[in-house]
Simulated assay, not measured.
Amino acid sequence: MKTKDMIQCTLCCVLMIIGGLLHISIGPIPLTLQVLMLCITVFLLQKQAWISVALYIVMGLIGLPVFASGGGFGYVLYPSFGFLLGFLIAALIGGYLYAYLLPKTKFAAIMTGIAMEAVIYIVALPYLYVIMTTVMGTTLTVSTLFSAYFLTFLPGDLVSVFIAALFIPRLAKVIKLQK
Rank of each mutant, 00 (worst) to 15 (best):
Y100M: 05
T41Q: 07
F167I: 15
S52A: 01
A90I: 09
I122E: 04
Y75A: 14
S69K: 14
G86Y: 07
I163D: 08
I17F: 03
V14W: 05
I17K: 05
C13T: 15
S69T: 14
Y75D: 08
L166K: 13
T105S: 15
L125I: 00
I120E: 07
F107I: 15
F153Q: 09
L88Y: 04
L45E: 10
F67G: 06
M59A: 13
L22F: 03
G63W: 05
S80K: 10
I168A: 12
G113S: 08
Y96I: 02
L145Q: 04
P28C: 01
I26C: 04
V123T: 06
I122T: 14
L38D: 11
L45P: 05
S52T: 01
V119R: 07
A109C: 15
I17D: 06
L85H: 02
L64K: 05
Y121Q: 02
Y127I: 02
A164S: 14
V66M: 03
P155A: 08
I163V: 14
G19Q: 10
Q8F: 10
Q48E: 08
Y98T: 05
P79F: 04
T3R: 13
L31K: 01
I122V: 15
K176N: 06
F73S: 10
T10M: 15
L31P: 00
I26T: 02
M1I: 10
V142P: 06
I7L: 15
A68Q: 07
S160E: 13
A108M: 02
L97D: 00
L88A: 09
L140A: 07
I17H: 08
Q46I: 04
M136C: 05
C39R: 10
C12L: 11
I57K: 01
L166F: 15
M132R: 11
Q48A: 09
G70D: 03
T144Y: 02
I168D: 08
F146I: 08
F81V: 13
M16G: 12
V142E: 03
H23A: 06
Y78F: 10
A172Q: 09
L31E: 00
T144D: 09
L177W: 01
V35Q: 01
Y100N: 07
K104R: 14
Q178E: 02
L97I: 05
M6R: 10
Y100T: 06
M16A: 09
R170V: 13
K179G: 09
T141P: 03
V123I: 14
I51R: 01
P79M: 07
T139Q: 08
A172P: 10
L97S: 02
L44Q: 10
V130C: 13
T10Q: 09
I120N: 10
P28E: 04
Y98H: 12
Y127H: 08
